[in-house]
Amino acid sequence: MVTIFILACFVGYYVVLRVTPALHAPLMSVTNAISSVIVMVALDAVLVGLYEIERHGGASVWFGIFAILLATANIVGGFMLTRRMLSMFAGKKKHVTEKRQ
């Protein structure tokens, strides 16, 4: 697991270094959206928790439900915001070679 973590840090480092400064704002909102992948755990809490509810009681399920609510709001909001930002950049491709002087 630690190996995976360190490798992922390296991949992240080299990929993000190549992001143009102009796109730093969309980068932030998209990374924010994908960090909500923790919703997987909340879904587990609710799905498995409901299945075995007699054994655990409801606390875990309720925490899970709140987490799902917050995380999906963030996922949808984050991706929509990124899309909106990127649509402003769309169609204005950068021609590095033909910069007017």
Binding site: M1, I4, F5, A8, C9, T31, S35, V37, V41
Partner: peptide, 8 residues
């Protein structure tokens, strides 16, 4: 989660 967490 570890991979995404490390990327972000």
């Amino acid at each position: 989660l570890i991979i995404v967490g490390a990327l972000v």
